[in-house]
């Protein structure tokens, strides 16, 4: 499945990324090459095969669920320490509503 500049731009938009024209051109080339390689999977028969979404399944996994209990979390001031911009006890972002 060949992929073009417009489609790559659309994906970039979905991923909240932007590229200058030169970067974009390079990206499209690599993207095509990688997707061509992925096409080898079409040869694998996966009829009646379940998807694996976890690394270890079944009994081996042994990862029990737990009660959803309220536990102590980070103090607000500590959580804000790394914020690029904050105001009182909030993270600050550019205006969302005019």
């Amino acid at each position: 499945m060949p992929i073009g500049t417009r489609e790559v731009e659309k994906i970039a938009d979905l991923a909240h990324l932007k590229f200058d024209p030169q970067e974009l051109e390079r990206f499209v080339g690599h993207f095509q090459q990688i997707l061509e390689y992925f096409a080898q999977l079409e040869a694998v028969s996966t009829e009646n095969v379940e998807s694996a979404h976890q690394a270890v399944e079944g009994k081996k996994r042994a990862t029990p669920t737990r009660e959803d209990e309220v536990r102590p979390s980070l103090p607000v001031a500590t959580a804000l320490d790394n914020a690029p911009e904050s105001s009182e006890d909030h993270f600050q972002v550019p205006p969302v509503i005019e």
Binding site: A15, L17, F38, L41, E42, V49, E50, S51
Partner: peptide, 26 residues
């Protein structure tokens, strides 16, 4: 991030992500 967004996006999810997840089972 771009490859990941692409293989999860509408129209390609089954062809890439689900296919790969099945091959992972194999």
């Amino acid at each position: 991030i771009m490859i990941g967004t692409y293989v999860l996006s509408a129209g390609y999810y089954d062809a890439y992500f689900i296919k790969a997840s099945k091959v992972r089972t194999l």
